[in-house]
Design a protein around this nucleic acid. Structure first.
Lengths: 193, 193
DNA sequence: GTCAATAACGAATGACGGTCGTTTTATGGC
DNA sequence: GCCATAAAACGACCGTCATTCGTTATTGAC
């Protein structure tokens, strides 16, 4: 009995925001620029999304889920424990933080400035941690150690790598970290046999 | 030959900002409120500091250095490797992120939103990583593993714990992470003997 | 005491996220 | 096909904030 929200407009807003967030970062992207690129009035964006932050999560959520799905398939193909673990942390600490011009850093901007009032963030992070736990369990030949705690550390470090992406000294350090951590886990599990 | 900057004014500005950042967080603290509490005009703050961000670093820098000094003394007193390592990660992942109402999160806000143009951040982070490396080397009974890489991971995870402080599920998870990681390192080094 | 450099100030300025009042448009009942 | 209406869409506007500007007041050297 009235006009109805169009998926196409919603998608245009998301595509516009995604592109601009990736290029300039979350804080340096204005609602005006999102509106302009989407060819929609600024105020109309608020018909589709409650806030700028909500747009960010609407982009981040499916992106992360998709990346974890892809990673799960990829890891399942790998033959041995060592390579599975290494691939897991490589994806989490190198590939994901670098993807789409460091898009993950936008999530860190949001997480660090948000006042927890968004249930969003907590849920999404919890989801990620669960996925990491599953991947880790499947990657190891045996599961003697506290997988949940290790997964938590891995996720916390992901935050750091996401932020550090444009700062900390190049990809070499990250690569060493991946190798060192994988070795640590691997040798620990080995020693239990 | 002219009026001169007064240390007392500078200190008042820093004290005011420190208190407000701790209470409301970096983004929710306004220059106006800093000025008011310091009993200084807003514009005069810019005589002493180039920007709001510069104030944050002027507070963070000595704070971190002092905390590392204190931690170093504290760890030196501990009798065995296991307790030294645990204390190190407890300080880094629990105490420091919680201190002063989550002040470390303000640094994360700054790091994630800054455009690297500040050499500040990079230097300070490098400094922290060096301190962690030293502490880690001194805590372990032997140093077979890649201490630098492990320190890097520890610092990256610090970022995550600093952000997660107000989000992630309570202190229990962090405490488990500390224990799990300490065990991991400890048993790894042990196995080398 | 005078001079010049600059600390200190109050009043702008420009951007930004978000809201408001109004207009336009799609839709379902007739 | 037409009307009533709810909601999408819009442009103007608001409040807030970091930062800058033009001016005044203070200081130390001579």
């Amino acid at each position: 009995m009235a006009q109805v929200k169009k998926d196409e407009i919603r998608d245009r807003i998301l595509a516009s925001a995604e592109s601009l967030f990736a290029e300039h970062g979350y804080v340096d992207t204005t609602m005006a620029s999102i509106a302009k690129l989407a060819d929609v009035s600024k105020s109309n964006i608020y018909v589709y999304f409650g806030s700028k932050l909500e747009i960010l999560w609407a982009i981040s959520d499916p992106w992360l889920r998709e990346r974890f799905d892809a990673l799960e398939s990829e890891i399942a193909e790998l033959p041995d424990s060592q390579s599975r673990i290494e691939r897991l942390f490589e994806a989490l600490w190198i590939d994901l933080p670098a993807e789409r011009n460091g898009f993950a850093n936008n999530m860190m901007q949001a997480l660090s400035t948000t006042d927890d009032s968004d249930g969003y963030s907590r849920d999404l992070l919890a989801y990620c941690e669960t996925r990491i736990s599953t991947l880790l369990s499947r990657s190891l030949p045996a599961v003697p150690l506290d997988v949940q705690a290790i997964s938590h550390i891995a996720l916390m470090a992901f935050d750091g790598f996401a932020i550090g992406q444009r700062l900390s000294g190049g990809p070499d350090i990250a690569r060493n970290s991946v190798r060192a951590f994988a070795n640590l886990l691997h040798s620990d599990v080995q020693s239990m046999h």
